[in-house]
Structure formats: C-alpha cells, structure tokens
C-alpha cells in the first residue's frame, strides 16, 4: 500500500514538474520584460544626467519636484484627463446603446450592423489618425462639405485651435473604440437568457426599465472591465497625439506618453525625468482602477 501511494506521488510530482516546465518560458519573459523594468523605472526616476551615464539625483526626488513646475507636463496631464472624462463615458454609453439595440431578436440585418460598427477596430491607430487629420485639415474635406451644405460660412481651423483639436481627437477615439466595447457588452448580453426579457415585457417593463433593471446589473462586471481598460488605454494615448495633431497647437493636445517619448528622444534626452513621468502614469492607472473596482463593488 505504501508502495502504491508512493508511486502515485511520483506521478503527481512528475506532472507537477511538467506543469512548471510549460509555464516557465511565458512567466520568465513577463518577469524579465515587465516586472524587472518596472523596478528599474522606479530607480531611474531618481536619477539624472546623460542616458549613458545616469547618476543619482540630488536631492533624490528632484525629477518628481520638477514635475510640479513643468508647464508642459501639467498641460499633458490636463489634456489626458480631458480625453478621459469626456470620451470614455460617451463611448461606453454609446457602446451600451448599440449592444442593446443589436441584442433584439426581432432586429433584421443584425450581422451587417455589427460588422459595420465593429469595423473601425481593424484600422491601425496611425492609419485612422492620418485619415482624420486629412479629413479635418483646414482646406480639407469636412470643411468643404460643411460649407457646401451651408452649415458653415467660413472654414474652421479644426486642428489649430485648442478646443476643436481636442474635439477631433475625442471624435476619432470614439469612432475607433465604440465598436470594440460594444462587442464585450453584446457577447455578455447574449449569455443572458432571452426569456428574462420576454417575461419583463409581459410584465409591462419598457426598454429603459429592461436596460436599467436587467441588463446593466447583470453586465456590471463587464462594464467594470471595459471602464478599467478604457481608462488604462486613455492614460497611455500616444499614436493619436503624435500623428493626428502632433501635440499642437502649442501642446494643447499633447498626451503624457507623447511628452515622455519627446523627453526620451529630444536633443538632450532625459531618461530620469521620462521615467519619473511614466511612473506617474503607473500610479494613476493603479489609483483609478482601484476607485473603479470600489465603486463597482458598492453597487452590488
């Protein structure tokens, strides 16, 4: 009997070993290329000097102190939060509306509508940035069409005034990502038993009641996931700022990632300061996610 259990243990141990073997390459890569650099970034954020000869700052928190006085950084922080506060809620509400409409079993051409609304996701961020830049240029198509229809008397300089430039970025972001979020909602809705809705309808519940009393409470976990993902993504916006507006006019649309990139690759690169700014993003992502999880939990 001892022998059998002993043999079983060896087989179990063998399998256990195989399990570790299977997951070690992936795990090692993540520790090497994600966690280790994170610790390095924290260290570098306390350093200064040329990239090839970084030395500890004096005082140590010099980079972080400079953040509070750096007008461009504060501007990039404000811009990023403007995008976050305006774009994410509009996008998620729109995605929820689309998903609700497309989840109707009586709706025809569902597949075509879904494909169309999901299609922007297939576009590279650089590609759609350039398309929107071209569409909204001063002598461009949007102005030409709006003037032809008679909505505008004179062309708007979309990309050269701070507010309209931000608006174009927000419109572009909503265009690119609404379908993506819709897919999350739609596939979660499809796992809700449709008879629940039919029963609610018989009880006289309207579309709005169904949405707020059935769909949204059941979809809360996925709403939380999309909110965290969108927040995380918006705090890291880069391609749009670089290619759609080039951060301009006068840094009015520059994002934090764009500024970090510039700090890394300008004439006098400052890796320590770039690392300090990137750590601010890390902390912001952590704080905002924590808040969202807290809020998401409370409504339970």
């Amino acid at each position: 009997m001892t022998q059998t259990s002993g043999r079983r243990l060896t087989m179990h141990q063998k399998q256990n070993l195989w399990g570790w073997l299977f997951l070690i390459p992936a795990t090692a890569l993540i520790f090497w290329l994600s966690f280790y650099p994170m610790i390095r970034a924290l260290m570098i954020s306390f350093q200064g000097g040329r990239p090839t000869a970084l030395t500890w700052s004096d005082p140590l928190t010099r980079n972080y102190q400079f953040l509070t006085k750096d007008k461009v950084f504060i501007q990039s922080l404000k811009n990023t939060f403007t995008y976050l506060i305006i774009q994410v809620p509009i996008m998620l509400v729109l995605a929820m509306i689309f998903a609700t409409l497309l989840n109707d079993h009586l709706l025809k051409f569902k597949g075509i509508f879904r494909t169309c609304i999901f299609l922007p996701c297939a576009t590279a961020l650089v590609a759609y940035s350039l398309i929107f830049r071209t569409m909204f240029s001063y002598d461009g198509m949007v102005n030409a069409v709006l003037m032809k229809i008679g909505i505008l008397d004179a062309p708007i300089n979309w990309l050269n005034s701070p507010n309209t430039a931000k608006a174009v970025i927000i419109i572009a972001l909503i265009w690119r990502w609404t379908g993506y979020n819709m897919i999350f909602y739609l596939s979660s809705m499809q796992s809700i038993d449709y008879s629940v809705y039919e029963a609610a309808r018989i009880d006289g519940a309207g579309a709005a009641t169904q949405l707020f009393k059935i769909t949204i409470p059941l979809l809360k976990p996925i709403i939380l996931v999309t909110a965290i993902m969108s927040t995380n993504g918006t705090l890291q916006l880069f391609d749009e700022s670089v290619n759609l507006t080039k951060g301009g006019p006068a840094n009015a649309t520059i994002t934090m990632s764009h500024y970090i990139y510039n700090t890394m690759f300008q004439k006098n690169p400052n890796f320590g300061y770039a690392a300090a700014m990137s750590f601010v993003i890390l902390i912001l992502v952590a704080i905002l996610s924590a808040i969202q999880m807290k809020v998401g939990d409370k409504r339970e």
Partner: peptide
C-alpha cells in the same frame, strides 16, 4: 495593469 509606457525607458536601455 502595468502601462507599457511605464517600462519604456528601462526596456529601451
């Protein structure tokens, strides 16, 4: 949850 931009500097180094 680690934003890619947060590890950009050390990764490049």
């Amino acid at each position: 949850m680690v934003p890619f931009v947060a590890i950009l500097v050390p990764l490049f180094q």
